[in-house]
Simulated scan of single mutants.
Amino acid sequence: MTMPLPDDEVLRRQVHPTAWHPSEPKIDSSAFKPRKNEPDGRISCMRAAVDPADAWKRYSGGDERRSAGTFGVRVDEASEVGCGAGDDSHEPDKPADHAFIEVRPDERSITRKARALAAYATARGPLFTP
């Protein structure tokens, strides 16, 4: 069972360097599409209780080639574009502060949802960059 999250919570998502274009500034929609290790359509995030710099360090191990930084999307923003969000930290393979945004196709494609999530994260700006 997934635990619900407060609508105003900003979930932390790591963005690969190829998906972050700081000169524009813009995040590519690929940052919010499920990766190969996310086959269930749940993109991995950390809860807002995790400091953005700590989220980056935990994910990247300090390697700037793995993540350009920590970016955020609010739970209600994900909901607005048809994506669910939840806390799955109770699952055995997840850390205590893990959450997800569910990006699955319905009347809107994954690409349209990912573009909308990227736009929210772009508008918010980076929460942390190395």
Rank of each mutant, 00 (worst) to 15 (best):
H90C: 01
A118S: 15
C45T: 15
P130Y: 09
R35W: 10
D7Q: 08
F71D: 10
E9K: 06
P34A: 03
D76I: 12
A55E: 12
L117Y: 07
I43P: 00
R42D: 09
L117C: 05
E38P: 00
K26G: 01
V50F: 03
P92I: 13
D88P: 08
V81M: 02
I101V: 15
V15I: 12
A114W: 01
S29D: 14
D63S: 09
F100T: 00
A114G: 08
F71G: 13
E24H: 10
E64R: 07
K94I: 01
K57R: 15
T70M: 05
D87K: 05
G69M: 05
I27V: 15
P92T: 13
R13K: 14
M1I: 06
D51C: 03
K33Y: 00
D51I: 00
L117E: 05
F128Q: 10
E91N: 11
D87M: 08
P4D: 04
A121Y: 11
S23Y: 12
E9C: 04
H21R: 11
S60K: 03
K94G: 01
L11T: 11
A121F: 08
H98C: 10
A123Q: 12
S30E: 15
K94F: 04
P105N: 02
R65D: 03
C83E: 06
D63T: 08
S23A: 15
L5F: 08
A85Q: 06
K26D: 05
D88V: 09
T2F: 03
R65N: 10
D97W: 04
K94N: 15
A19M: 04
I101R: 06
G86M: 09
D106K: 01
A78K: 09
G61N: 08
R65L: 03
F32W: 13
S23V: 13
T70Q: 05
P39R: 07
W56H: 07
A19Q: 13
I43M: 04
E24K: 13
C83K: 03
P52T: 11
D63A: 12
D8P: 02
P17N: 02
E102T: 01
S89Q: 11
D88A: 14
E38M: 00
P105S: 13
P39Q: 07
P130N: 04
V75C: 11
H90I: 09
D97C: 00
A116Q: 14
S79F: 05
I27E: 11
M46G: 02
E91T: 13
D8L: 08
F32V: 12
